[in-house]
């Protein structure tokens, strides 16, 4: 049971990381959203057998992590949670595509393995960039940024409230789990059957609570828009961040830096 409380405390990781004052946190959320989106598009634009060319792009998530002071351990844990999707998507590639496309030493490597590795690499790059960007910005600022970029507020308010509702749900859930555990005398209580009833009552309890939260919001003038006092203003640093990264992505896409480096090191320049 102690375990479940630790896990629950972890859900707040995003806000905890985002609430710190970091160089990444000071960058305008709109700029971060656009660059991260551009990064993801760039990564996805590579061919299915390209691995080496993708590697230099890792600089973006790495710089975000450093700028946002995001612990690597954290990011890796979250990556692992999301990884089954990527792992299963490409699972059959090695079986379906047996055409050798490159040789490592004297071993021929099938195209399926290469494309599978490329899928995993793209997954790691894009998801870690998105996670690092979120950890350095916070849901709240991301929503503000999206709204300022023209995303309908119906959508951003949904995201925001959904995120807040998660905590409400967790809080109510924890109380019920605790109450059940304390009266089940260390056994499994009434077993699985009781969980059905608990889920139903959890839903009703959270609905009730959410309604109270809603009333409290309405009492303070909530009308469907979440307004804030911090106004977003693009500063010089933001422009440098945006132009710098977009420029780099374009350059990396056009110039095969990894290939050039390899050529340089193996002395192909002769």
């Amino acid at each position: 049971m102690a375990n479940i409380h630790v896990k629950a405390a972890e859900i707040g990781w995003l806000e905890r990381l985002a609430s710190r004052d970091t160089p990444l946190g000071r960058v305008d959320p709109r700029v971060k959203l656009i660059t991260t989106l551009a990064f993801i598009v760039t990564v996805l634009s590579y061919g299915k057998y390209q691995i080496a060319a993708l590697l230099p792009l890792a600089v973006y998530p790495l710089v975000l992590m450093v700028m946002g002071d995001v612990p690597a351990r954290f990011l890796i844990r979250k990556l692992l949670i999301a990884s089954p999707f990527a792992i299963f998507v490409g699972l059959f590639n090695p079986l379906l595509d047996r055409q050798p496309v490159l040789t490592l030493g004297s071993y021929p490597i099938a195209g399926g393995w290469v494309s599978y590795a490329a899928i995993l690499l793209r997954f790691v790059l894009t998801v870690s960039a998105a996670l690092a960007m979120m950890a350095g910005t916070g849901i709240y600022n991301i929503c503000r940024g999206m709204e300022r970029l023209g995303v309908p507020s119906v959508f951003t308010v949904q995201v925001l409230l959904l995120y807040r509702y998660l905590f409400v749900l967790m809080d109510e859930g924890l109380r019920m789990v605790r109450a059940r555990a304390l009266r089940s005398a260390g056994n499994r209580g009434m077993g699985l059957r009781v969980y059905g009833a608990m889920l139903g009552s959890l839903l009703l309890r959270t609905l009730d609570r959410a309604q109270r939260v809603h009333v409290a919001m309405c009492c303070r003038g909530f009308d469907g828009h979440v307004r804030t006092i911090q106004s977003l203003r693009l500063r010089g640093g933001d422009v440098v961040f945006l132009v710098g990264w977009l420029g780099l992505f374009v350059m990396l896409r056009l110039v095969d830096v990894a290939g050039l480096l390899g050529a340089l090191l193996t002395g192909a320049g002769r």
Partner: peptide, 17 residues
């Protein structure tokens, strides 16, 4: 009653609205 990310923003919620 409190739902914004910081105390400051929570207190500001009403006046901003």
């Amino acid at each position: 009653q409190l739902f914004m990310p910081t105390v400051f923003e929570d207190v500001a919620f009403g006046p901003v609205n």
